[in-house]
Write a protein that binds this DNA or RNA. Structure first.
Length: 853
RNA sequence: GGGAAUGUAGCUCAGUUGGUUAGAGCGUCACAUUGACAUUGAGAAGGUCAGAGGUUCGACUCCUCUCAUUCCCACCA
């Protein structure tokens, strides 16, 4: 009775059913306090890239969660004070755009007008809260071991306070300014967007070449004739002989705008004399480039298109109120009538569209808030761009090629427009003194007050705009640690250790985190960044709702287990590269998890009184020695790969060891040998009791649930999550160059020989007397042309004589000679770094060993 | 226009210091089986490692060029 009770405690069910254990295990981990950083080890923090509340987690998030969690579990087990801090992002424009789209689809033609600010915000807030709670439960489901006590949200009270503090600091230092500049305007979204929020799409357009008037000497080419109603200059290259005579002159032309246009001919090197007519009609109000020319040359600025995408009064009575396309047709018709149109041709051109609202962006001059990136910081003599560049050198980016991209982005960076005309987000903490009941936001910056609340109860009006969502995301690495307060967390964990993100938000997010962190804390936000690729479907397409190819992670985890899903995503995924997701892989890794389960099950059946062995036991057979040696190598490799965040290689190695080395080889051989070797069963048991627990530890970062579930049957003590990372036991100096393949071949050969020689399966072989073993040994030696010895101390040694072909042998001999001559060269040994010389020596030794020397 | 990545078995992908016979999963074909596991085991077929040239004793790996695919940045007004 008591026996069966004990055995039932240890016995595992026949198959691993993930869904039956996962939830319970997560709760146990959380209750144990393992998720919170503890101990006195080196601090190691990872800030979770906060998923947007625009939706719920998709398969791409699972990859990200798996990367972070694997890393943090590993570091935690190594004794670091590990913190993975969870959170979510309000995703200002994206969320509002999403909700508005739904509302419009539900019949509310103009949600902003219909509901008003407060009501619409409430609708968005509910939507966000719903997604947020779904996402948080998804994160739990994925096994992410994050510290929930530090949960953050970009729009919560603490993060909002950080935003206000940062805004104020930057304003006081002169980095945030309010300026009248040309910005990207989405007519559909009725909001600005930053340069990075544009998506360029290629489309056909017509280039019209025309003259402003019959006597105007310079022909102009344009794809947007309607904007020409607002031209204030014509720019040519300073060296262009055709037009040099006109530079400095001002022409008056009447093209039908409200007032005749005064066109100044200016010279600027930005103009390409070889392109088009070699002259540019400068429309400062509706082109970024032209706006820069305007600033440089002090030109006039005439807005002819308004926020509604329609022509303004400035465009003249003939055009005012028309949408741009209509105005274009009308203007071209007029040009034709006046015989000013020289030619029309079709070209393909890239136009900027809003990534959230989808419409073509208008460049409009507006009064907005900006972050100055080219201005020197008082006392530091550097611009924000400089800081970002310098920080780039201190941060390790994996893969390295993204660093180049980052620098390229900095070089092209213009002042960052941070104000948005949507309502969802951090409202700009700027107050204007109310002067009368018909108050309008003033153009001047006098009487501004910056804080989350006005200085007095009455008489102040807050700026209606909100901040670009990346402003708050940029603070993420430190706002989550309590900044601006000088918290212990900030002192302990900053700069954070590691961060992962997709390459598509490199500029949006990474760059801005670096900017904000360098500016506010004079520190890099993180030491290492791991850039992951995008997961695509089996046809190589992006997952998207419109393509209806999205996969619910929940369905996959229920079907195959979270561990299988995590492993499938990590194994075979390399940093920075996209990868295709296919379900077969998940299924395969489910099989793997089950295999591990059954290995453990078998081991427990063989060893009913299983006790964890900590010290590497003494091997007594070749198989023992081999498996110990192999495990030692595997563990060292895996540890190294995890340190360097090379997850795929670590996972693959563990996979191979578990399935091939341990299950297919060692345990299979053990089955045979256990029938032969009576007195060594204890030694074999000890090896399994040593390796299996270590293997579970090493696998835990990848497959936390299954490893923990099995661990529960091996040990009645601590949870696996809190165990120490194993250290490879000392193995004897192992000579020889057997690979797994070689050993496997030998084993197969032995099996064959045994059956040919009719050595009964159950014949007992006693190692100590050596008698039957001699036969065994002889068989191996004759088959593999090797000598086999078992040493007393630690490991058995198999000294394989290489079975090289003559041609290969010759090749190697030449190779050896080449290294020898290289080493004999004094120039080389003197000038080359020591590591290189040592490497050459090692190569030589290896090559010699291969030849059996 | 500038830059980057990718091209390895039918499919999805590994392969970091250049070195023995280029790997895995899935798929295909045939074989085995009764107590860990059919979510199994042992095996086979399938590759001019995109192409050409170069460096080297030796190149999937390094260099150059070409082709194909994809992406990023800038933008022509």
């Amino acid at each position: 009775m008591s026996n069966s009770r004990i055995s039932s405690k240890k016995e595992l069910p026949k198959a691993y059913i993930a869904s039956e254990v996962e939830d319970e295990l997560y709760v146990r981990w959380e209750k144990s306090g393992a998720f919170a950083p503890h101990g006195t080890g080196e601090p190691y923090a990872i800030m979770m890239p906060p998923p947007n509340v625009t939706g719920i987690l998709h398969i791409g998030h699972v990859l990200e969660q798996a990367l972070m969690d694997t890393k943090i579990r590993f570091e935690r087990m190594r004794g670091k004070r590990a913190l993975l801090l969870p959170g979510t992002d309000h995703a200002a424009v994206a969320t509002q755009a999403r909700v508005e789209k739904d509302l419009i689809a539900a019949g509310h033609a103009n949600p902003r007008k219909e509901f008003g600010r407060d009501k619409l915000l409430e609708i968005i807030r509910k939507y966000a809260e719903k997604n947020k709670s779904t996402m948080l439960s998804q994160i739990r489901m994925l096994g992410t071991s994050c510290d929930w006590s530090r949960l953050a949200y970009t729009l919560d009270e603490k993060r909002s306070a950080a935003v206000v503090t940062m805004f104020k600091k930057m304003y006081d230092d002169g980095f945030i300014y309010r300026g009248y500049r040309v910005v990207n305007w989405s007519v559909v979204g009725q909001s600005t967007c930053s340069d990075d929020e544009l998506v360029h799409i290629e489309r056909k357009a017509t280039v019209y070449t025309f003259k402003y008037s019959k006597d105007f000497p310079i022909p102009i080419a344009t794809t947007r004739p309607e904007t020409k109603l607002g031209d204030t200059a014509v720019a040519v290259h300073p060296d262009d002989k055709r037009y040099k005579q006109y530079v400095g002159n001002t022409f008056t032309v009447d093209v039908g705008a409200a007032k005749p246009l005064l066109l100044k001919v200016i010279a600027d090197k930005a103009v390409d004399p070889k392109f088009g007519t070699g002259a540019v009609g400068v429309t400062p109000a509706h082109s970024m480039i032209d706006f820069e020319l305007q600033e440089k040359h002090g030109l006039e600025l005439i807005p002819v298109i308004g926020k509604d995408g329609k022509m303004t009064a400035e465009a003249g009575t003939a055009y005012a109120g028309l949408i741009a396309v209509e105005a274009r047709e009308k203007f071209v018709a007029w040009l034709k009538k006046e015989k000013l149109l020289i030619k029309e041709e079709e070209i393909s051109q890239n136009v900027a569209t809003s990534d959230r609202f989808g419409d073509v962006i208008e460049a409009l001059p507006m009064r907005q808030w900006f972050v100055a990136v080219q201005k020197e910081i008082p006392g530091r003599g550097k611009t924000l761009k400089d800081l970002m560049r310098e920080a780039g050198e201190k941060i390790e980016i994996q893969p390295e090629r993204y660093k180049k991209l980052y620098y390229q982005w900095i070089d092209n960076l213009r002042d960052w427009c941070i104000s948005r005309q949507v309502w969802w987000g951090h409202r700009i903490p700027v107050w204007y003194r109310e002067t009368n009941s018909k108050f309008q936001i003033p153009n001047s910056n006098a009487d501004l007050y910056i804080d989350s609340n006005p200085p007095e109860n009455n008489g102040w009006v807050q700026d209606p705009d909100t901040l670009d969502t990346w402003f708050s995301s940029g603070l993420w690495t430190f706002s989550t640690l309590g900044w601006p307060e000088k918290t212990d967390d900030l002192k302990t964990f900053y700069p954070t250790a590691w961060m992962t993100m997709g390459y598509e938000i490199l500029f949006f997010w990474m760059a801005r985190m670096i900017l904000m962190s360098e500016y506010a804390l004079k520190e890099i936000p993180f030491k290492q960044v791991y850039i992951h690729g995008i997961l695509r479907d089996s046809e190589g397409k992006k997952f998207s709702k419109s393509l209806r190819n999205t996969i619910d992670p929940l369905v996959l985890t229920k079907k195959y287990g979270t561990d299988a899903l995590r492993l499938a995503l990590l194994a075979g995924n390399t940093p920075g590269n996209d990868s295709s997701f296919n379900e077969e892989r998940v299924q395969h890794y489910q099989h793997f998890v089950n295999k591990l389960w059954n290995i453990s099950r078998y081991v427990l059946m063989q060893i009913p009184d299983f006790k964890i062995v900590l010290k590497a036991p003494k091997p007594s057979t070749i198989a023992d020695g081999w498996v110990l040696q192999q495990w030692s190598k595997t563990l060292a490799y895996v540890t190294n790969k995890l340190e360097r965040a090379e997850f795929s290689q670590a996972a693959t190695m563990l996979y191979t060891f578990t399935w091939e080395d341990l299950a297919d080889w060692y345990i299979e051989v053990a089955k045979i040998e256990s029938r032969q070797i009576i007195q060594e069963k204890k030694a074999k048991d000890a090896i399994l009791q040593y390796i299996l627990p270590q293997l579970l530890k090493a696998l835990h970062p990848f497959i936390p649930f299954a490893s923990e579930a099995i661990w529960g049957s091996l040990s009645s003590g601590e949870l696996l999550i809190s165990e120490q990372w194993p250290v490879a036991g000392k193995v004897g100096d192992v000579k020889g160059h057997d690979t797994f393949e070689e050993i496997k071949k030998k084993t197969t050969a032995i099996r064959q020989m045994r059956s040919e020689m009719k050595i009964p399966q159950h014949q007992k072989i006693d190692v100590k007397t050596g008698l039957p073993f001699v036969q065994y040994k002889a068989v191996v030696e004759s088959l593999t042309n090797s000598t086999m010895t078992i040493t007393d101390d630690v490991m058995p040694v198999v000294e394989a004589v290489s079975t090289l072909t003559d041609s290969k042998r010759k090749e190697l001999e030449v190779y050896i000679k080449s290294i020898e001559s290289k080493l004999a060269n004094k120039e080389f040994t003197k000038k080359a770094p020591k590591s290189v010389v040592d490497a050459e020596k090692k190569k030589l030794a290896d090559a010699r060993a291969k030849l059996g020397r």
